[in-house]
Computed example of a mutant assay.
Amino acid sequence: MKLIDITNEFDNNDQIIYSHGDCCEILRKVPDNSIKLIITSPPYNIGKEYETKESIEVYLQTQTEIIEEIIRVLSHDGSICWQVGNYIDDYEVYPLDIFYYEIFKKFGLKLRNRIIWHFGHGLHTQTRFSGRYETILWFTKSDEYTFNLDDVRVPQKYPGKRHYKGKDKGKPSGNPLGKNPSDIWEFLYNEWDSGLWDIPNVKANHIEKTQHPCQFPVELVERCVLALTNEEDWILDPFAGVASTIIAGIKNNRRSFGIEKEREYIDIGIERIKDFLNGELKIRPLGRNVYKPTGKETVAQIPEEWLK
């Protein structure tokens, strides 16, 4: 396996491509119908250090140009997972998934799920409720798409439940491999027990935290990779950041292609990939319970000032 290929050329014989430069320019060198899964979290236009805040109209036009290129490179049986939050302007919320839905439909894609990613820590605000979710829009290019449900099933809540009538009366009614996950992603109570995905966002105490302010958790990518691709398929993240998607792909024997314009994040991502290949990168395991503080810890106790 070639460790890193930082280049503006796409070589189908590589295993890892991590390109530094303009997204559209690099995508134009990628062959048509060559990528099985495109999964990313684009800039939200909220004024992070790596983006310039602009009008919602200009922002969406720029994103449309990129979307047109990624649809071109997406295979006939491929999928796009587009994860977004909200755009805030003058204290008003603009739900970006609604705007993006119209763009993808304009290009003829079909929405298979609108997945809610719930997390426990949101933005601090005193003018509205704290935002604790983002959405993943799963689109396909056709009706003939890869979907490996058995690879992502979650444990049955009532495995002993049986059919009470019909030809299968008395037989177990569930699938022995588990049930279909819901479209609300929240790991809760036991591993995948509830069918909801509570995948922590990457904040200060997350083991994967780097300098990137809006980092993709690896386990968020993994379920999409397992369900929507097969081994040796290409996955692409056109806003790759510090390489979380690339790492999720390598971890599951997929070919991984990332594009990132910020040199600082490329350098961090290279080190993360090297650490992963050497078995030294700390990654939150897929399906691990969300940490809950105990009463013995200071942060879990009521401050004395509040008791007065």
Rank of each mutant, 00 (worst) to 15 (best):
Q15F: 15
Q15W: 15
Q15N: 14
Q15L: 13
Q15H: 15
I17N: 03
I17D: 02
I17W: 10
I17L: 11
Y18H: 00
Y18K: 01
S19V: 05
S19W: 02
H20S: 08
H20L: 14
G21T: 02
G21V: 05
D22H: 06
D22Y: 04
D22E: 11
C23M: 10
C23R: 02
C23I: 12
C23S: 09
C24S: 13
C24F: 10
C24P: 08
E25K: 13
I26T: 03
I26Q: 00
L27C: 06
L27D: 00
R28F: 11
K29I: 06
K29R: 13
K29H: 07
V30T: 10
V30R: 02
V30C: 09
V30K: 01
P31R: 04
P31E: 07
N33W: 02
N33C: 10
S34Y: 06
S34W: 01
S34V: 07
S34G: 05
S34M: 06
S34L: 04
S34P: 02
I35T: 06
I35Q: 04
I35E: 03
I35L: 08
K36P: 03
K36V: 11
K36E: 08
K36R: 12
L37F: 01
I39V: 12
I39A: 11
I39C: 09
T40R: 06
T40L: 10
T40V: 11
T40I: 10
T40G: 09
S41R: 04
S41I: 06
P42C: 07
P42Y: 07
P43G: 06
P43L: 09
P43A: 08
P43I: 03
Y44E: 05
I46G: 07
I46V: 14
G47T: 07
G47F: 10
G47W: 08
K48F: 15
K48H: 14
K48R: 13
E49K: 10
Y50H: 11
Y50K: 00
Y50W: 12
Y50G: 03
E51T: 07
E51N: 07
E51L: 08
E51I: 08
E51P: 04
T52K: 14
T52Y: 13
K53E: 15
E54T: 15
E54D: 12
E54A: 12
E54G: 10
S55N: 08
S55G: 12
S55P: 04
S55F: 10
I56Q: 09
I56T: 11
E57D: 15
V58P: 06
V58W: 15
V58L: 14
V58N: 14
Y59S: 05
Y59Q: 02
Y59A: 03
L60P: 02
L60N: 05
L60T: 01
Q61H: 14
Q61T: 13
T62R: 15
T62G: 15
Q63W: 09
Q63M: 14
T64A: 15
E65S: 12
E65V: 11
E65W: 06
I66W: 01
I67E: 00
I67D: 00
I67T: 05
I67R: 00
I67G: 00
I67K: 01
E68D: 12
E68I: 01
E69M: 08
E69Y: 04
E69I: 06
E69C: 08
E69G: 04
I70W: 04
I70M: 12
I70L: 12
I71R: 00
I71H: 01
R72W: 01
R72T: 01
R72V: 02
R72M: 04
R72L: 05
R72N: 00
